[in-house]
Design a binder for these strands. Structure first.
Lengths: 193, 193
DNA sequence: CTGGCATGTCAACAACTGTTGGCCTACAGT
DNA sequence: ACTGTAGGCCAACAGTTGTTGACATGCCAG
């Protein structure tokens, strides 16, 4: 997709090319993982020469860092239905996962690559923990609760979108929400068992 | 580890070498994932020439197939405490994950490699589903329940052993069992929500 | 003693990778 | 018209990878 060039730029504005590279990179990283997503393939998808990738992002690691910037967009606790927060969160993440390649890309790379794992941890600490801290009754326990919630959500994402267990793929959104919702709700708010 | 050679073999029995290769391969696949685990490194670990790997396993895919043969050793339902099956299962998998590199290897490769994913699905279908079918009240729903159970167990394994979320690593075995046990129990036996 | 087979090494191939530097070319400002 | 510069391409490098075939060597059977 070459975006429209507002009259008067050079052949293409550098920003447009950088964006095209990022798009292609996200798709490739999501589909192939870090090692098999080659710079050459990404450049081909973006319709430019591999050396341009280096010009704009320095090296492959830099490209991945840029391509894996991610915002989970977890809704603020106040906007969630008090009683069905678990279900609402599950629903949110199903949406997120189905509409954004970056989540799968980050997960794939996080599992294979040490730097990728560090990045996933940063997202977890920076975005998941704070939200859980705003929900759970004992904020000092938020990290543990966040880890539990994440384990269930990550697990379902892997089963459904990465490993593609047939029953997990076939299951309807509603079924998943109905089954996982209570689990997440319990991890968020239940007394320590 | 060169195993003892019963008097009268050639320099080394082929079985011993094959086993040494498998050990090294499991370790490397677990540590590095499929792409970065090179045949050369595996051969070096096993103390032999890379070409021997090809001789015995044909190619890298064949080596991985052999190295990722896995038995989850899920206990038969009859031997489980009727009331705490969920907790017992969680405990079993924690043990399994901590004592066998192959699980991590299979998971890592399953997430990056299409053939690896197929293999994980086979293990799931062949070993998880039957056990769940022997436990849950409605056997025709076993695949779905098995997927749910797997999602939670896989998710915790990834958070704790692969991504190493600090809270998931710090958590004690007992805490994990206490939190996940009821979840798994519900996935196994609860009425459909 | 001699042959044959199993176990193993060595060196090389062809493909592919990330990365680099030099060159081209169209546009904007003068 | 001229030139500087930003956007882009080309060709090549150096390293690594999976994989292959030719060759060495120890052991047992005859």
């Amino acid at each position: 997709m070459t975006t429209e060039a507002p009259a008067g730029g050079p052949r293409r504005t550098s920003g447009a090319t950088k964006a095209a590279i990022l798009d292609a990179a996200r798709e490739r990283f999501a589909a192939d993982g870090y090692e098999r997503a080659t710079i050459r393939a990404i450049a081909r998808d973006a319709g430019i020469d591999p050396s341009m990738v280096m010009r704009y992002y320095g090296n492959k690691e830099g490209l991945f860092a840029a391509a894996s910037e991610i915002d989970l967009r977890i809704p603020r606790p106040e906007t969630l239905p008090a009683v069905g927060m678990g279900a609402a969160l599950v629903e949110h993440f199903l949406d997120r996962w189905e509409n954004d390649d970056v989540l799968t890309a980050l997960l794939r790379v996080g599992v294979t690559n040490a730097a990728g794992a560090e990045r996933v941890r940063a997202v977890f600490t920076g975005q998941m923990v704070p939200v859980v801290a705003g929900i759970c009754p004992d904020p000092e326990d938020a990290p543990r609760r966040a880890a539990l919630v994440s384990s269930q959500i990550l697990g379902m994402a892997i089963a459904r979108y990465v490993l593609r267990f047939p029953p997990a793929v076939t299951m309807s959104r509603e079924d998943i929400v109905d089954w996982l919702g209570p689990t997440v709700q319990r991890y968020l708010t239940a007394e320590r068992p």
